[in-house]
Amino acid sequence: MKTVLTNKNISIRTRRRALECYLEPILMYGCEAWTISKQTQKKLEATEMWFLRRMLRISWTAKKTNDTVLEEAHTTRLLISKIRKRQATFFGHVMRREKLENLVTTGMLEGKQREKLIEGLADWLKAGKSLEAIEATKDRKKWRTMIANAVKQGT
């Protein structure tokens, strides 16, 4: 894909679409089950910027800010938002199903607990507490509205 993504004869819009179609799905494989910490989020954002810099043939030693690179690429940071949207959609599906996946996702099984997916989603959706997010999943229309609002805010 390097030859396509770095080809100056192809418009930046087309190269961005190729990036979204071919590389982002590979990068985001299984992201519905990830727990995104601040460190993971920074790595994902750095990866997104690395792709754009490679596409625009901007050296990592060039003193260009990320905002300048985003401006040149005619885009904004979308990767984290896409991942969070996929997580929220999957989470709503799992919560409405009320099976084993529900217990695992909410952390109701015994054993060592790690940061729950729910807490990260509740923060992203601005739902306050994780219980509010769980309750919102029962009403599909309300849940979809919450997801759409979070995506619009670009958080």
Results as ranks from 00 to 15, higher is better:
Thr47Pro: 03
Leu117Lys: 08
Gln113Gly: 02
Ile147Trp: 00
Lys38Ile: 02
Glu48Gly: 05
Leu103Thr: 13
Lys85Asp: 09
Ile36Pro: 05
Ile26Ala: 08
Gly128Phe: 09
Leu70Gln: 01
Gln39His: 06
Thr137Glu: 02
Lys116Trp: 06
Leu103Met: 15
Met146Ile: 07
Met28Glu: 09
Phe91Gln: 10
Gly107Phe: 06
Leu103Arg: 03
Val94Gln: 14
Arg77Gln: 13
His93Ala: 11
Gly111Lys: 07
Trp60Lys: 12
Ser130Val: 10
Leu78Tyr: 15
Met28Tyr: 11
Ile10Gln: 10
Lys99Ala: 15
Ile134Asp: 01
Ile36Lys: 10
Lys129Gln: 12
Lys142Glu: 07
Leu79Ile: 13
Ile134Lys: 14
Thr145Glu: 03
Lys129Gly: 08
Lys63Ile: 02
Gln153Thr: 07
Lys99Asn: 06
Thr106Ser: 00
Glu45Cys: 08
Ser59His: 03
Asn9Val: 00
Cys31Asp: 01
Thr68Arg: 06
Lys82Arg: 15
Arg84Phe: 10
Val4Asn: 15
Asp123Leu: 02
Leu103Ile: 13
Thr61Asp: 03
Glu32Cys: 09
Lys63Asn: 06
Asn9His: 11
Glu45Tyr: 01
Glu72Ile: 05
Leu44Met: 14
Leu52Trp: 02
Arg53Asp: 02
Glu20Thr: 09
Val4His: 03
Leu78Glu: 07
Leu100Thr: 12
Arg86Asn: 15
Leu27Trp: 12
Met49Val: 06
Leu131Cys: 06
Met108Val: 02
Thr3Met: 13
Glu72His: 09
His93Thr: 08
Leu117Met: 09
Trp143Ala: 09
Leu117Asn: 12
Leu121Met: 08
Gln39Glu: 15
Asp67Phe: 05
Leu52Glu: 02
Gly92Gln: 03
Glu71Phe: 07
Ser37Lys: 14
Met28Pro: 03
Glu119Asp: 15
Leu103Glu: 08
Trp50Val: 12
Ile12Trp: 03
Met108Trp: 04
Ser81Glu: 14
Arg84Asp: 08
Ala150Asn: 14
Leu56Ala: 01
Glu98Asp: 10
Leu44Lys: 06
Lys85Cys: 03
Ala73Lys: 01
